[in-house]
Design a binder for these strands. Structure first.
Lengths: 269, 269
DNA sequence: CGAAAGGGTTCGCTGAGTGAAACGCTGGCC
DNA sequence: GGCCAGCGTTTCACTCAGCGAACCCTTTCG
């Protein structure tokens, strides 16, 4: 008989984990993926990827046309059910529309997740598509308007985490030292307004303001972004601040603690 | 020894299927669920539900605060990646905003899935919240404006399916016989406009128009809905039709076949 | 033609997953 | 107080769902 170090499931990953590895392959803008690529990107044997993908298709989580897979509508349905973004969206949208109406620049709504902003909603200016960030994507906290607005009201540990995650210079204007960032955050708390003057990307400027719950915790943030050439953040700062305050008041007590606290980890398993 | 018909996994459901059974528990407006309820609703043994839910929490698919579970942000992220709704949304939103601006009534965007409409996007009128349908939910094709607009351009088999799914009377105005419905659909094709005059719910009226791809397939539909008391569908019919046509043209060839064809079922497994 | 890469299938092995049962805790009820 | 019902959690012996190396068939490309 052969010498068998034939181990099943060499990494300790469960079926479930693998399934979501597959779904994550679609993260980077890939809309349809073939089996081989799927397996490669998810680091799974072809046979395994095939089997799991097949199951996901049966569950209508993936769809399949020809030999290509794409994310299924059922995922969209489940995704829309996630409570916190939905509620926020509902409460903030009217104000976002007002902001858009009065500026015709791109309006964003985001929440903190770990050391990143997760973009929940946006109204994109038709004239500056480059400025807009896709919903459901993330960006670092330290170099975005939304991020800094959220960070300014977060407690010490979170700020430390964000700094430790690394302050990579994205442009010559990015704040890349902890003191710089901390100073900026203090300023934001004073005025209620966060600026991003080409710190994330050259040519893009942004004003943001945090949405705060009744206990002073930052639940989300609103921002307006536009091309530096034509967009004057100081002019709209007050409007953004007002909108954020309005949302805070609208949602009122219903959202106490709805913010992005770190999820309670389950027992090790 | 005991007589053992001790069968493992008594229904033939895989871990994956079970996991999504759990996620489906959150379908009916429940935002947070305890373990016992979760197990009961998903028809799983408590221990199994516990184990799987625990894994999902580790994967950040579920979140847990105290002893209650809720859908995790990662699901939201994945859900936003689903291509077809996203592209549609992107293309249709500007026109939806125009419609809202000129009517101040609720605007909906939906696609067909099976014999139902899946609501993809909406702009809700602030004055008539009752009229608005939540994004990510479904309604039957036969008794909604969006549904009939989609059905009118669908092929024979789909219409038959929709009829066979049952024409339940939801109000006294619901079309409940196949000939009635077929007649209405022919009318819709002629005019490009679908009406729902309190067929789904008393007091709610709606005009809709289909978004058609270059091959004549219905990809989605737009509608405006309002309270019968103040909303005159005839006045806005032309605007809805125009908006739908504009979206069709905007998306142009990029969406050929992006519509909600039935997903290809995988081999039986 | 052969080589490479794609999708799909086979099959014997085994540990990941199973669920009945027991456990400790809390809160309501008599 | 004592009791019970319901909750979340843990245990454990059993076993089949899941595994993946190897293989097959096409298509593509030089």
């Amino acid at each position: 008989m052969w010498h068998t170090d034939h181990v099943q499931n060499r990494d300790g990953a469960s079926v479930l984990a693998r399934a979501f590895q597959l779904l994550d392959v679609f993260a980077d803008n890939r809309t349809t993926v073939g089996l081989a690529e799927l397996a490669r990107a998810a680091c799974l044997p072809k046979a395994t990827a095939y089997r799991i993908a097949g199951q996901l298709v049966n569950l209508e989580i993936l769809e399949r046309s020809g030999n290509r897979y794409r994310l299924g509508l059922r995922l969209f349905e489940i995704g829309t059910r996630v409570t916190s973004p939905r509620r926020l969206r509902e409460a903030a949208l009217p104000y976002m529309e007002d902001l858009y109406e009065s500026t015709h620049e791109t309006v964003h709504l985001g929440i903190r997740e770990g050391t990143e902003v997760l973009y929940i909603e946006r109204i994109a200016a038709r004239l500056a598509p480059r400025v807009a960030t896709a919903i459901g994507t993330r960006k670092p906290l330290y170099c975005t308007g939304l991020g800094k607005a959220l960070l300014a009201y977060s407690n010490r540990e979170i700020v430390t985490m964000a700094i430790e995650a690394g302050l990579r210079p994205r442009t010559p204007h990015t704040l890349i030292t902890a003191p710089q960032l901390r100073l900026a955050l203090r300023q934001i708390v004073k005025t209620g307004i966060a600026y991003d003057r080409e710190e994330y990307a050259l040519g893009v400027t942004c004003v943001a303001s945090a949405i705060i719950d009744s206990r002073g915790q930052p639940v989300a943030a609103l921002s307006i972004a536009g091309p530096t050439t034509r967009f004057d953040p100081d002019r709209t700062a007050a409007a953004v601040r007002t909108a954020a305050l309005s949302v805070s008041r609208t949602m009122g007590p219903q959202l106490a603690g709805l913010g992005s606290r770190e999820p309670t980890r389950a027992t090790s398993l």
